[in-house]
Amino acid sequence: KRCPSCQAPIEKNEGCLHMTCAKCNHGFCWRCLKSWKPNHKD
C-alpha cells in the first residue's frame, strides 16, 4: 500500500493497524487508510 498523505510505499509485516509513515510521519489506519485518531473506528 501507499501512504495516503505522501504516497510513499508502506509495507506491513505484523502488529496493529495504526501505521506511521517513515517518510512524512503521517499516522493512519492500515485497513481503511484514514487518518488515525484516538477513537478511530473502521
Score class of each variant (00 low, 15 high):
Asn39Glu: 10
Ala22Thr: 09
Glu14Cys: 11
Met19Arg: 05
Asn39Phe: 14
Pro38Asp: 02
Gln7Ser: 03
Cys6Gly: 08
Leu33Met: 09
Lys41Met: 04
Lys1Leu: 02
Cys6Lys: 02
Cys16Leu: 09
Glu14Gly: 10
Met19Leu: 10
Arg2Cys: 12
Ala8Tyr: 11
Pro38Met: 04
Glu14His: 02
His26Lys: 05
Ser35Met: 12
Cys6Asp: 09
Gly27Asp: 14
Cys6Val: 04
Asn39Lys: 12
Lys1Glu: 02
Ile10His: 02
Asn13Lys: 13
Gly27Lys: 12
Lys12Val: 07
Trp30Ser: 09
Pro38Ala: 09
Ala8Gly: 11
Cys3Pro: 00
His18Asp: 05
Gly15His: 02
Leu17Pro: 10
Arg31Pro: 07
Lys12Leu: 07
Cys21Pro: 01
Lys37Cys: 12
Ala8Ile: 04
Trp36Ser: 13
Lys37Asp: 15
Asn25Tyr: 00
Cys3Leu: 01
Leu17Ser: 07
His40Ala: 12
Ser5Ile: 08
Gly15Lys: 05
Cys29Lys: 01
Trp36Arg: 06
Trp36Cys: 04
Ile10Gly: 05
Asn39Gln: 08
Asp42Leu: 03
Leu17His: 09
Pro38Glu: 14
Cys24Trp: 01
Lys12Cys: 06
Asn39Tyr: 04
Ile10Tyr: 01
Pro9Thr: 09
Asn13His: 08
Cys16Glu: 15
Lys12Thr: 10
Trp30Thr: 11
Cys21Gln: 02
Glu14Gln: 08
Ser35Pro: 15
Trp36Phe: 07
Ser5Asp: 08
Asn39Ile: 09
Ser35Val: 08
Cys21Val: 01
Ser35Trp: 06
Cys32Pro: 00
Pro9Glu: 12
Trp30Asp: 11
Lys12Ala: 13
Leu17Gln: 09
Cys6Gln: 02
Ala22Pro: 13
Asn13Ala: 10
Met19Ala: 10
Asn39Cys: 09
Lys41Glu: 14
Gly27Phe: 02
Leu33Ser: 01
Pro9Val: 05
Trp36Gly: 10
Ala8Lys: 11
Leu33Ile: 02
Cys16Arg: 14
Leu17Asn: 00
Ala8Asp: 05
Trp36Gln: 12
Cys32Ala: 01
Ser5Gly: 15
His18Glu: 11
Trp36Ala: 12
Pro38Ser: 06
Gly27Ile: 09
Cys29Asp: 03
Ala22Val: 05
Cys32Glu: 09
Phe28Trp: 06
Gln7Asp: 15
Asp42Thr: 09
Ser35Ile: 03
Trp36Tyr: 07
Gln7Glu: 13
Pro4Val: 13
Lys1Arg: 00
Phe28Ala: 07
Asn25Gln: 12
Glu14Trp: 04
Cys3Asn: 13
Ala8Phe: 11
Leu33Glu: 11
Asn13Trp: 11
Gly15Met: 02
His26Gly: 11
Lys34Cys: 04
Lys37Glu: 14
Pro38Tyr: 00
Cys21Lys: 02
Cys32Asn: 02
Glu11Val: 03
Pro9Gly: 09
Pro9Trp: 15
Lys41Thr: 05
Ala22Lys: 05
Trp30Phe: 08
His18Gly: 07
Arg31Trp: 10
Asp42Gln: 07
Leu17Gly: 10
Ala8Trp: 14
Leu33Gln: 08
Trp30Met: 06
Leu17Glu: 11
Trp36Asp: 14
Ile10Thr: 09
Cys21Thr: 07
Asn13Gln: 10
Asn39Thr: 13
Phe28Gln: 12
Ser5Gln: 15
Thr20Glu: 05
Lys41Leu: 05
Cys3Arg: 01
Pro4Ile: 11
Met19Cys: 11
Lys41Ala: 12
Phe28Arg: 07
Cys32Trp: 01
Lys41Asn: 08
Leu17Arg: 01
His40Leu: 06
Ile10Trp: 02
Glu11Leu: 05
Pro9Tyr: 05
Lys37His: 13
Ile10Val: 08
Lys1Thr: 04
Cys24Phe: 02
Lys23Asp: 06
Ile10Leu: 05
Ile10Asp: 11
Asn25Ser: 12
Leu17Thr: 06
Pro4Arg: 03
Ser35Thr: 12
Glu14Arg: 04
Lys37Ala: 13
Gly27Thr: 15
His40Val: 11
Cys6Tyr: 02
Thr20Met: 10
Cys24Pro: 06
Lys1Val: 03
Met19Ile: 11
Cys24His: 04
Gly15Ala: 11
Cys29Ser: 01
Cys29Ala: 01
Cys21Ala: 03
Ile10Arg: 02
Ala8Glu: 13
Cys6Met: 03
Cys29Phe: 00
Cys6His: 06
Asn13Cys: 09
Trp36Pro: 12
Cys21Met: 00
Lys34Pro: 04
His26Phe: 13
Leu33Thr: 05
Asp42Arg: 00
Lys41Gly: 13
Cys21Phe: 00
Lys12Arg: 07
Lys23Thr: 09
Asn13Pro: 14
Asn25Gly: 14
Thr20Ile: 14
Phe28Asp: 13
Cys16Gln: 15
Arg2Lys: 13
Pro9Cys: 09
Ser35Cys: 07
Lys23Cys: 01
Arg2Ala: 13
Lys41Trp: 01
Pro9Ile: 02
Phe28Asn: 13
Ala8Val: 06
Leu17Lys: 00
Asn39Leu: 11
His40Gln: 08
Glu11Ser: 03
Gly15Arg: 09
Glu14Ser: 10
Cys24Leu: 03
Pro4Met: 09
Cys29Val: 00
His26Val: 05
Lys34Arg: 06
Trp30Cys: 00
His18Asn: 02
Leu17Trp: 07
Lys34Trp: 01
Glu11Thr: 08
Cys32Met: 02
Lys12Phe: 03
Arg2Glu: 14
Gln7Gly: 14
Asn39Gly: 14
Asp42Gly: 07
Ser35Leu: 12
Gly15Ile: 15
Phe28Met: 04
Gly27His: 15
Cys29Gly: 01
Trp30Gly: 13
Arg31Cys: 12
Cys16Phe: 08
Cys3Trp: 00
Lys23Asn: 07
Thr20Asn: 10
Gln7Val: 07
Lys12Gly: 14
Met19Lys: 11
Asn13Val: 12
Asp42Val: 04
Cys29Leu: 01
Asn13Gly: 10
Cys32Arg: 00
Arg2Trp: 05
Lys12Asn: 12
Pro9Asp: 05
Lys23Gln: 03
Lys23Gly: 06
Cys16Asp: 15
Thr20Cys: 03
His26Ser: 12
Lys37Asn: 06
His18Ser: 06
His40Ser: 12
Glu11Met: 04
Ser5Phe: 03
Met19Pro: 11
Cys6Pro: 01
Gly15Gln: 01
Leu33Val: 03
Phe28Glu: 09
Cys24Glu: 08
Ser5Cys: 13
Ser5Asn: 15
Leu17Ala: 10
Gln7Phe: 07
His40Trp: 03
Cys24Ser: 04
Ile10Asn: 02
Gly15Leu: 02
Ile10Phe: 05
His26Tyr: 09
Cys32Gln: 01
Ser5Trp: 15
Asn39Arg: 10
Cys21Trp: 00
Cys16Lys: 15
Cys3Ser: 05
Lys37Gln: 13
Gly15Ser: 04
Pro38Trp: 03
Glu11Cys: 02
Ser5Thr: 14
Gly15Glu: 12
His40Pro: 09
Gly15Thr: 01
Phe28Ser: 10
Lys23Ser: 07
Gln7Ile: 04
Cys6Leu: 05
Arg31Ala: 10
Cys24Val: 02
Asp42Met: 01
Lys1Pro: 08
Thr20Tyr: 15
Met19Gly: 06
Cys24Gln: 04
Cys24Met: 02
Trp36Lys: 13
Glu11Pro: 05
Asp42Lys: 02
Trp36Glu: 14
Cys16Val: 15
Asn39Val: 09
Leu33Gly: 06
Ala22Leu: 05
Arg31His: 12
Asp42Trp: 01
Gly27Val: 13
Lys12Pro: 12
Leu33Pro: 03
His40Asp: 13
Ala8Gln: 11
Pro4Gly: 12
Pro38Thr: 07
Lys37Ser: 14
Met19Asn: 08
Gly27Met: 06
Asn25Glu: 10
Gly27Ser: 14
Lys1His: 03
Cys32Thr: 02
Lys34Phe: 04
Ala8Leu: 06
His40Asn: 15
Glu11Ala: 07
His18Cys: 03
Ala22Met: 12
Cys32Lys: 01
Asp42Ser: 04
Leu17Cys: 07
Arg31Asp: 13
Lys12Trp: 12
Pro9Lys: 04
Lys34Leu: 01
Gly27Pro: 08
Glu14Lys: 02
Met19Gln: 11
Phe28His: 15
Ser5His: 05
Pro38Arg: 04
Lys12Gln: 11
Cys6Phe: 00
Cys6Ser: 02
His40Lys: 05
Lys23Val: 05
Cys29Met: 00
Lys41Ser: 10
Gln7Leu: 11
His40Arg: 05
Phe28Thr: 06
Cys16Ser: 15
Asn39Trp: 07
Glu14Met: 13
Trp36Thr: 13
Arg31Ile: 09
Lys23Pro: 01
Glu11Tyr: 15
Ala22Ile: 10
Lys1Cys: 00
Ala22Ser: 07
Ser5Ala: 15
Ile10Met: 10
Arg31Asn: 14
Arg31Val: 13
Gly27Leu: 03
Lys12Asp: 06
Ser35His: 04
His26Pro: 08
Ala8Asn: 15
Thr20Phe: 03
